[in-house]
Amino acid sequence: MATKQSPKAGTKVSHSTGITVTLDPQGKTKEQKEQELSKRVADCKDKDAATVIAGLDADKLPGTIKTSSNDPADMAGTIRGGIAQGTAYIVTDAIVDNGRIDLVVDTVAHHNRELASQQIPAMCEAAGKQAHPYGFKVPLFSDNSGVVFSDDTNWSYSFEANITNAFGAVARGCRLPVPVP
């Protein structure tokens, strides 16, 4: 399939002028390729990075692997080395850019800790209201230092809170465990 022509179709030229036609042996236009890559990228997010990278490598698709979308450096060598040494990575974002698939990855452990820290306030609110219906104030969270991970995906959290009973009495510094769904 012809994907490009120079000069453009409909242009009048002399007999001696050369015409260049670019052919794609797979018969796909640049737009079709971009659409296919976009569909493929949609399937990459939240998947095991080693599997995704191996699939892209097998199909000889170009791109970069970074730890942040704003990172100027391609970390492919470092990340591939980490995977080879047993570090588990997850794809957190994937972008199609001019025929390239750029992956953003994070270690599974770090990614899960970040997710846990985002869930903590809502979980504390629910646990506190259930255990103490007469008064409970969710503490302010500046970090996730109370999170205890038993492995890369399972964690628990406990914190200290002031609890007010139905008569207005306050118990200060009560330790509350938060059940993880």
Rank of each mutant, 00 (worst) to 15 (best):
I79H: 02
L56H: 00
T164H: 03
A126Q: 08
A84M: 10
S16P: 08
I90T: 10
A109L: 11
F136E: 01
F167V: 10
C124I: 15
A169H: 14
G146P: 00
S145V: 04
V104K: 03
P72W: 06
S69F: 10
K4A: 15
V96G: 02
T87E: 06
A54I: 09
V180F: 10
V96Y: 02
G86S: 02
A131N: 10
T3C: 08
G81F: 04
P121V: 02
D143P: 00
I83S: 01
R113N: 07
E36K: 05
L37Y: 05
A76V: 12
S16F: 10
S69V: 14
Q85K: 14
N165L: 07
F159W: 15
K8A: 15
C44F: 07
F149G: 00
G81D: 04
V41H: 01
A42R: 10
D106T: 05
A58Q: 05
R80P: 00
H15M: 13
G63S: 03
E160N: 14
T153C: 05
L115D: 07
E34T: 14
Q85F: 08
A54Q: 10
T22E: 11
N165W: 06
E31V: 09
T87N: 03
A88T: 08
A42F: 11
A73F: 10
I101C: 03
N98P: 04
P72E: 04
I95K: 10
K47F: 05
S69Q: 11
S150G: 08
T29R: 02
D71N: 09
E31L: 13
K12S: 09
G77I: 14
E160V: 09
K129M: 07
G63T: 01
R100E: 09
G81S: 13
T51V: 13
K33I: 07
Q35R: 11
G86I: 00
E36R: 05
G135I: 03
V147M: 10
A88F: 06
T64G: 07
V148G: 07
E114N: 09
I95N: 11
A58F: 11
V96N: 07
C44A: 05
D106Y: 03
V148A: 12
Q26T: 14
Q5C: 06
P121M: 09
I90Q: 01
A126C: 06
K137Q: 15
P177C: 12
I120G: 03
R40Q: 13
V180P: 04
A169F: 11
G146M: 04
K4H: 14
G82Y: 01
G128Q: 00
N162K: 06
Q130T: 15
E160C: 09
V178N: 01
Y157K: 01
Y134G: 13
I95T: 15
K33E: 05
A109G: 06
N162R: 05
P181I: 10
A2Y: 15
A126T: 09
S69M: 12
A131R: 09
T29D: 01
K129A: 05
D71W: 08
L56D: 00
S38P: 09
Q85V: 08
F141S: 02
G63W: 00
R80K: 14
T3M: 07
K45V: 15
A161I: 03
A88W: 07
P133M: 02
V148N: 15
A116H: 00
H15Q: 14
L115A: 12
V105L: 00
L23T: 07
K66A: 02
A161D: 04
V21T: 03
A171D: 15
Q26V: 11
